[in-house]
Design a protein around this nucleic acid. Structure first.
Lengths: 215, 215
DNA sequence: GTCTATATGATGATAGAC
DNA sequence: GTCTATCATCATATAGAC
């Protein structure tokens, strides 16, 4: 399974040069309805637990349309994730140089992805699917984690920057998973600023060089 | 789904009083074979991705035997997890009072569960299933997390001990998930002592009172 | 674009013979 | 304890009429 693949996404490219014979906007409501239903179901039940029939039922459309628009179940999933969340927005919010509050800035930028309903649904679906099985584990890494790790490594520098950056990234994933996916209390009900205050010391400790040398 | 439930576990109680007509030991090899296959498959493919037929196939037994011994799919899962991992061993390894190296001791005790093959399989299966869907989220909390949180809270004390203990616990879960379930590099390939060195600063920072007050 | 009809196969579970 | 046979249901996916 690869999110970047879309076997039969039959939506015509909206950015074609000639605007004259283009499709009228707002016309394609069922495709959007399918995507919305898919996002919600994948977020709640995971990839394996969601059937294309259930998606069609929830969207109020015919089951065959799901395959017509997206080819297969993976296509629906990929479209639902890809068209709602763009991890570039995280990188854009990060500072160019490491300052005093890098830990807080990292947490704010990354957790921001999870604070809006639609992107949160897509992220939850992504995490659920990535954790679900051996074969889908790399979904997380592929979906924007790699550039984030590199960026953090460049920010902190030093000898084992890559390893420490991965560790930081693992903490970001860990806290997001517990607050937004597992909804563990009292973390889930905290306000975002308070949650960041609780998470920041751990991230800061890892960012700084308080780690024993490799050997 | 509840791990503590076992709908039709038809194994006769081995500790019955009269030894005369008891079953001979070592006789029940297929039940063990089913459990072993179940553990491996649940760990690799998750709960939803594993079929009872696949378990039977891998164990080399008839599919009907799976239901005969464990009633249903949930029964197989519950037995596979319950009979291989006991979270009490984690609590037993923890110190009575908080010392200088509490962070390391916590990590060593908890991660120890994941370093042996069979228990690791059961833990991975448990985590995969817990993360997979909304309905199974509480599996993690039920499977020994609650007493661990209370124990940590008692160890660190203070006003918001419960919240900080939960945060610590969330970090334990987070690092375990990334190293053993997602197998994110370079964390997965590190030696355990080195991994603990990398994880300890974050845990220690959360354990100590470096967190801003609630409001 | 939308839907009916259907091909094809896997699934969890049960009843009952040996 | 073990297996055959089977039920009822669900799944993904496709072909083709309107």
């Amino acid at each position: 399974m690869a999110v970047s693949k879309s076997p039969a996404d039959s939506t015509p490219a909206a950015g074609g040069g000639q605007p004259r014979t283009g499709r009228r906007p707002g016309e394609n409501s069922t495709r959007a309805a399918i995507l919305k239903a898919a996002r919600e179901l994948f977020a709640e039940l995971g990839f394996a637990g969601t059937s294309t029939r259930a998606i069609a039922r929830k969207a109020g459309v015919d089951p065959a349309l799901v395959h017509h628009f997206f080819g297969n179940k993976e296509g629906v999933f990929a479209a639902a994730v890809r068209e709602t969340v763009s991890t570039d927005t995280v990188l854009d919010k990060l500072p160019e140089t490491a300052g005093e509050n890098l830990a807080e800035e990292l947490l704010r930028a990354f957790l921001g992805l999870w604070e809006e309903r639609e992107t949160a649904e897509a992220m939850v679906a992504l995490y659920r699917t990535a954790v679900a099985a051996n074969s889908t584990t790399n979904l997380l890494h592929d979906a924007g984690m790699a550039p984030l790790i590199e960026r953090i490594a460049k920010l902190i520098g030093g000898r084992d920057a890559k390893a420490r950056a991965t560790m930081v990234c693992s903490q970001l994933i860990g806290v997001a998973l517990l607050r937004y996916v597992l909804r563990l209390e009292p973390l889930a009900s905290m306000s975002l600023p308070r949650f960041i205050r609780y998470s920041a010391p751990a991230v800061r400790a890892t960012l700084s060089g308080e780690i024993a040398p490799a050997r």
